[in-house]
């Protein structure tokens, strides 16, 4: 329906160009296009080839500009922003990792020092304990030796006292025996009594 006038329009410009027409033929074609455009009001504008050249020209111009803007400005800028953010995050993570390593090293050093200190304390304590023990042992030995000496003296004294006491025991026994004999059987010689006591004591 609208294809035929379209062909007519396309045919006309070529003729106009052929005759090297300036403004006048162009105006004529324009007038020609207007009539069918008004004519198929009920037609379908997107399929009307009369508008194709203008649409192509302007979409080409606008899209070229937009592409140029994208390539020159928008895409690199957003790309840079995203890259900067990615770098920043990566470097921050790096730094955090480094700090963590440092912190871990510090903790390890602290632990080691703590362990050393504990070991030192143990050895010092052990040494002190050993020394105290040795000292106590020495003192105890000395005291024991003293006590042993005293004990020996005491035993000696006891022995001597016992010996002298035992000696006295003989005399007492003789006197007692003599007294008892005197009471029972009259006088008894001192030598007989001593011999009898001796025999009994044996």
């Amino acid at each position: 329906m609208f294809v035929t006038p379209a062909h007519a329009q396309e045919a006309q410009p070529t003729e106009a160009e052929g005759t090297h027409g300036t403004e006048a033929p162009a105006e004529t074609t324009h007038a020609g296009t207007e009539v069918p455009a008004e004519g198929h009001q009920g037609g379908f504008p997107p399929f009307d080839p009369a508008h194709f050249p203008s649409q192509i020209l302007w979409i080409a111009i606008t899209f070229a500009l937009f592409y140029w803007f994208m390539k020159r400005t928008a895409a690199p800028r957003i790309g840079n922003i995203l890259d900067a953010r990615r770098d920043r995050i990566a470097s921050d993570l790096d730094q955090a990792g480094k700090m963590k390593v440092e912190a871990d090293a510090a903790v390890a050093a602290y632990e080691q020092e703590l362990a050393e200190a504990r070991a030192n304390a143990n050895t010092i304590g052990q040494k002190a304990r050993d020394e105290a023990k040795a000292e106590a042992e020495a003192k105890r030995k000395q005291v024991e030796a003293e006590l042993d000496g005293k004990l020996a003296d005491a035993e000696k004294r006891i022995a001597s006292i016992k010996a002298s006491a035992m000696k006295d025991v003989g005399a007492i026994a003789e006197e007692t025996a003599a007294a008892i004999v005197e009471q029972l059987a009259g006088k008894a010689s001192k030598a007989d009594v001593a011999a009898a006591v001796k025999a009994v004591a044996k």
């Binding site: 006309q12 410009p13 070529t14 106009a16 160009e17 033929p25 162009a26 105006e27 074609t29 324009h30 296009t33 009369a50 508008h51 050249p53 203008s54 649409q55 020209l57 302007w58 979409i59 606008t62 899209f63």
Partner: peptide, 19 residues
């Protein structure tokens, strides 16, 4: 309206919205 070499290259409402 722009007409060059017999072609209708007018700046239309369509071109306006492209811009």
């Amino acid at each position: 309206p722009i007409h060059i070499g017999g072609y209708d290259l007018s700046f239309t409402n369509s071109a306006l919205f492209m811009v």
